[in-house]
Each structure stands twice: as structure tokens, then as C-alpha cells.
């Protein structure tokens, strides 16, 4: 499903149009407001937030809250800032995205071009796994990670995210490859090309767009995950968990400006992805909802 450029044939009067523009602008303000509040208050000294007005521009601009959020803020028991957690998130996200995307591509290829009896059932089982409430797997997962010696480690989190990301990556590639002419694959087979050769030389070269969609989707989901990070992270927590610990901490003065700077830091990677590749981001959302 793509957002085409064709507009509706419906025409509207002048007053209606003014009304429509007004509503559209009001909603734009609604969506931008929290971002504005976060941004503007992350460059203010704390006294200007507690004593002043959340909506007004800073009298005194400062980057101290950002420095504090990054390297000195108290998170849990240690005053390390978000830096180590940012690193944990990166170390977790990159392999998890890469592995789940590659596996998804191969699975999608098999489920569309090497169909066998029962393949729809297998796909259905993988598809349903995208939608389970993860609470149902928390208890056994905690035990299995413990047994494997992976509890509270980056490899443990990678495993969790690959396992529960597989359904979506398979879904993307399967739906994409389903539209690719199977005759080409059969022709290549007749010419003597094997399973991997066809995947490598015929399927992969046309997979660019869906790979981008899949990578963005997995990246956003895994980066933004909180439940698994909080449950299995132990002391190696990802960004979201660290941000929550920082904001919820009940000791000392609440440094709102630092909290806002930290929230933006946690949001920056996915926001950049959205700004750079928004078109693919939307396509990923669509493909995840409207199963083709």
C-alpha cells in the first residue's frame, strides 16, 4: 500500500476550507507541543522551569542539562549519565536488527518461492507471534536466559529481540517476495541455479526497498523496547530503562531540564531514522498492519 499523490475529486467551499486549515494547524500544534516543551526546557537552568514558565524561551541558554544527562546524571546508584546505556543500546540493536532481517529475508524467500505443504500454517504461527502480549513469555524467558548464562547480558537481549522480531521480518519479506514473479525463479532453476544462488543473485538484488523498511521497523522497535530491557537487562540496561530510572528516581531534587535532555537523547536515533527515511517508516507501519 503506498501513499499515492492523487487527491480526491471532492471540492469544498471557501469557509469550509478555512475551517479545515484551522483544524489541521491546531492538530499540528498538538503534535508539536510536547517536542517543543522538551526541547525548550532542556536548554534552561532548573530555576527557570520551577520558577518560570514551561512555554517561554529561556532567558539564559545553557547546555549543562545535556552534559549532565549524557555523562554525570545519577542513574540507579551510579552517576554515569546515559552514555554507557546508549552504548548498550547500540551494541544490542545493531546485531539484533542484522540477524532478524537476514533470517526474515531467507524465510520470506522459502515461504514464497519454495512452497511446501503446510507452509501457510508455519507462516501463520510466525505471524501470530508478532502480536502476543510478551507477558506470556516473561517467566520462562527469564529462566531460559538464566540457564544459558545470558541473563543480564547484551547477548541475552540480542537473542530475545531476534526471537520476537523474526515474525515481523518474515512477514515483510514474504509479502514483498510474493509479488515477485516465480517464473523467473523456475527459469533460473532450469538453468541449473541452486537454492542459495537464486537467493543471492536474483532475490537479494531486488530486495533493497523492503530491506530498508524491515531494518527501520526492527531498529525502531528494538531501540524503543522497554519491557524486555527492564526484565532481562539486569545491570546492562538499554536507554529506555535508564531514562525511566532517571525520571522516576525519588532521591534529590527533580532536575526537569536534565530529564528532558535525556528524553531527547533517547529519542534522537529513531527520530533521525524517521527524518531521513520517513517514507520507508510509513511503509513499514502499513505493511505491519495491512497484511498483504
Amino acid at each position: 500500500m503506498s501513499v499515492a499523490t492523487q487527491d480526491t475529486a471532492v471540492s469544498t467551499g471557501r469557509i469550509t476550507r478555512t475551517f479545515i486549515y484551522l483544524i489541521l494547524l491546531l492538530f499540528a500544534l498538538f503534535y508539536l507541543l510536547p517536542l517543543y516543551v522538551m526541547g525548550i526546557n532542556s536548554v534552561k537552568p532548573l530555576s527557570e522551569i520551577t520558577g518560570g514558565n514551561m512555554m517561554s524561551l529561556p532567558n539564559e541558554w545553557t547546555l549543562d542539562p545535556w552534559r549532565s544527562a549524557w555523562s554525570t546524571a545519577q542513574i540507579g546508584v551510579q552517576a554515569t549519565g546515559l552514555k554507557p546505556y546508549f552504548l548498550t543500546s547500540i551494541l544490542m540493536v545493531v546485531p539484533a536488527v542484522a540477524i532478524s532481517t537476514i533470517l526474515g529475508a531467507i524465510n520470506g524467500y522459502i515461504l514464497t518461492k519454495w512452497r511446501f505443504k503446510g507452509d501457510t500454517i508455519i507462516f501463520g504461527l510466525m505471524l501470530f507471534s508478532c502480536f502476543i502480549p510478551f507477558q506470556i513469555v516473561l517467566i520462562p524467558m527469564a529462566r531460559v536466559l538464566g540457564m544459558l548464562g545470558l541473563a543480564g547480558s547484551v547477548p541475552g537481549l540480542i537473542l530475545v529481540h531476534v526471537v520476537y522480531g523474526l515474525g515481523f521480518s518474515t512477514l515483510y519479506f514474504r509479502n514483498y517476495y510474493a509479488a515477485f514473479p516465480t517464473e523467473l525463479v523456475r527459469a533460473a532453476q532450469i538453468d541449473g541455479a541452486g537454492f542459495f544462488r537464486i537467493f543471492w543473485r536474483i532475490m537479494l538484488p531486488v530486495s533493497g526497498p523492503i530491506a530498508v523498511v524491515c531494518v527501520i521497523w526492527q531498529f525502531t522497535n528494538i531501540w524503543n523496547d522497554f519491557l524486555f530491557g527492564a526484565s532481562f537487562g539486569g545491570t546492562t540496561q538499554p536507554m529506555t530503562v535508564a531514562l525511566n530510572n532517571l525520571v522516576q528516581s525519588s532521591t534529590g531534587v527533580k532536575e526537569y531540564n536534565v530529564h528532558f535532555a535525556a528524553a531527547i537523547l533517547a529519542a534522537i536515533p529513531t527520530l533521525i531514522v524517521y527524518i531521513v527515511a520517513g517514507r520507508y517508516f510509513v511503509r513499514g507501519l502499513m505493511a505491519g498492519s495491512v497484511k498483504g
Binding site: L24, F27, A28, Y31, L32, L33, P34, L35, V37, M38, N41, M54, T220, W223, N224, D225, F226, T240, L243, N244, V247, Y256, H259, F260, A262, A263, I264, A266, A267, T270, L271, V273, Y274, I275, G278, F281, V282, L285
Partner: peptide, 24 residues
């Protein structure tokens, strides 16, 4: 211009969303 403004919150985690609204 409007479409991406309406959509960007979807790129944020619920933790970031919650933090922003909690203080707002």
C-alpha cells in the same frame, strides 16, 4: 509538511512519550 508532523510521535518510544507528558 503536515503529514510528517502528525506522524513523528510514532517514532518515539512510550517511555519518551510518557516522560514528556508526565511533566507537561
Amino acid at each position: 509538511v503536515l503529514r510528517p508532523i502528525y506522524l513523528y510521535p510514532m517514532a518515539l518510544s512510550f517511555i519518551v512519550t510518557g516522560t514528556a507528558w508526565k511533566w507537561f
